[in-house]
Write a protein that binds this DNA or RNA. Structure first.
Lengths: 361, 361
DNA sequence: TCCTACGTTGAGAGCGCTCTCACCTGGGAG
DNA sequence: CTCCCAGGTGAGAGCGCTCTCAACGTAGGA
């Protein structure tokens, strides 16, 4: 039966060729093979080829095979724009990265999350559109997002309290990395790490090793991760029947950590352990502790959070809480993909952390 | 004159509405306004609206105004897929990030470059597609790139020696961040930082401050940046009439730097300065130097490269070479945009570095 | 034997836009 | 006065795909 079709194909090509002569093509017509071409090549209709490409079950296996062979032979790749236009889906997902995160140095956490996301999307048809938005998202970004250019979005951020982001959730499925600090949590989806448990485990470790005056250096209160870690610290101390009053607030930077531990030392000179909400601050703390003549971990134990490369770069090496950042990215991808697929999803569980015991506590 | 047109618009809406009743729309038809709609609203043809949207000069100013008003009123955003399909341009650019770079994210350098790129693209119609490719780029990535889904590509990498990437240059404009280690350089475009001059300046600084035995710790030979830095070191020493034999190869990690400086110390115990090809290795070197009882900078001066946050985190603070990473990203964006626009471009000049003198030399 | 049902397939109408071309004006040249 | 040209405009044909619907066997039941 391919005879007639083969003729059609030839005619087609000739017509194309002569068209080329007369109408002057805007770009090389020779370019990508189309569905039409594959149809001619395999002797079926465009519709059937489309079905094969999209994995419809209602095509005879032998036809599927023939079409796939033709696709292979022609090296056919579907045209995304055409597909989008016809199906009203973009097969694109926005990856929103607040500018702050980009400049936020040395935080391999986000890089890992993004890597997890990309890994999780690998087998899907979706691609990622990188949007680095400043604190005041530009007209371009907004228009882009509202203009129906993406089917969904990831938000990778520490404090995702943007008003625009909340609205975004109404237009398309959005998955946040970390519980967003949004008023209406119900509307949006997120994957989070169990910061409370992570901190709690760290502090329990300190308690078990005999520490009796355990302070903490927290992050800014507008970052939920920081708040959660402090809560974990509190719970562990309450469970152990210890006082939980030695708190200093840092800003997640090394200098902030240094300043915070100085405050701590002056108000609670008898402290014998500090749980620090991230590694960078822990480094600052270590420095000040050394300057003040206290031995780590003999006089004061220190436990950080993140298990960043900085942790092993310190002397002594930092005991810290490792976060499953890449897993987080993967879960985010899975969640969004499910949402996009229209599946009924339930909130994914909090991801567990791991305490990495090194030299400081 | 809008009377007749207004009627048309109403009819249009009614037809749409009744269609909705009978044919059952796949998605809410109410959705985005189309060119057609804007045309009806402003009483001109679709063609004219298209001209206005694309900034054609051959439209009467008053018409332009009327159309823009309608666009504003309707909150019209052009449909990217339709535009792509018709114009055979995608208005998308691939941002290729080798996986290694993601994991190797001790390096705020890349984050800055990416930020520069996004900043440079802000005012264009193009958007970025993030493609994190493993060393063996997946089928998906390849197909995506060859499938005509992007108009151009950025490659952000240390060693861009991929064979696939070379081929990519034949299909579309590609701009590399850093001179690619490709056989046929002529075919592709890049923006690079003047590593030779950066290193040379650093070493000259050492020479001027009276150092007489200046060693270097280089990076791997397959990274052009490393090779260039070593060349700069060589040139400076030759110009100063000093011996240039004290070389140890590192791997850009802290431990690599430590090992390298140990080698250096054992073979050239009289060295009084080390130029280290990146900050991370410099940290390792500093540690070993301290362990070996040498004072920095009194006995041995150390100069790093990158001016990463790590530089200021060290004690003593590291003298190092700052790279204009964000500028590099910006230039990359400008270059690719020009290429895409069809402009005749000449290779951009090497970007100058800055020596940041701190405490180590 | 006819009718219905099902499983496959093809035809064709768009999706929203760009771009060519033909058409209209009006003004200057012949 | 006619012709031509140019700027400005609209009509209409696609771009490559999806999706509905109708048409086609073919097989089962009445």
């Amino acid at each position: 039966m391919p005879v007639q079709e083969a003729v059609t194909a030839v005619e087609d090509e000739e017509k194309t060729a002569s068209d080329t002569e007369t109408t002057v093509p805007r770009t090389k017509l020779s370019g990508a093979p189309t569905l039409e071409r594959v149809a001619a090549e395999s002797g079926v209709s465009r519709s059937t080829v489309s079905r094969v490409v999209n994995g419809s079950p209602k095509v005879r296996p032998e036809v599927v095979e023939a079409v796939n062979a033709a696709i292979e032979r022609l090296n056919y790749v579907p045209n995304r724009a055409a597909r989008s236009l016809a199906s009203r889906q973009t097969y694109a997902i926005a990856l929103l990265v607040p500018e702050r995160v980009m400049t936020f140095f040395n935080d391999p956490f986000f890089a890992s999350v993004v890597q997890g996301i990309t890994a999780g999307m690998e087998d899907s048809d979706y691609i990622l559109n990188l949007l680095v938005s400043s604190s005041d998202p530009t007209r371009k970004t907004r228009r882009y997002l509202r203009g129906g250019n993406v089917d969904g979005a990831f938000v990778v951020s520490h404090h995702a309290a943007d008003r625009d982001l909340a609205d975004l959730c109404d237009i398309m499925p959005v998955v946040f990395g970390g519980r967003p600090a949004l008023p209406d949590l119900a509307a949006c989806h997120y994957v989070d790490i169990d910061n409370v448990q992570g901190a709690r485990t760290a502090v329990e470790h300190l308690v078990v090793s005999g520490r009796r005056r355990i302070a903490t250096i927290t992050g800014p209160d507008d970052m939920l991760a920081a708040v959660d870690r402090r809560t974990g610290w509190l719970h562990a101390l309450q469970a152990a029947g210890q006082r939980a009053d030695a708190i200093a607030v840092g800003d997640f930077t090394e200098d902030g950590g240094a300043a915070a531990v100085r405050t701590l030392l002056s108000r609670w000179p008898d402290l014998d352990a500090v749980f620090v909400a991230n590694d960078l601050m822990a480094r600052g703390a270590l420095r000040v502790l050394a300057e003040s003549g206290r031995a780590v971990p003999d006089d004061v134990a220190v436990v950080g959070y993140d298990d960043s490369p900085a942790a092993t770069a310190m002397r002594p090496e930092l005991t810290t809480v490792a976060q499953p950042s890449e897993t987080m990215g993967r879960r985010m991808a899975e969640l969004l993909l499910a949402l996009l697929h229209g599946d009924e999803v339930e909130p994914p569980p909090l991801l567990p952390t791991t305490l990495v015991v090194r030299e400081t506590g």
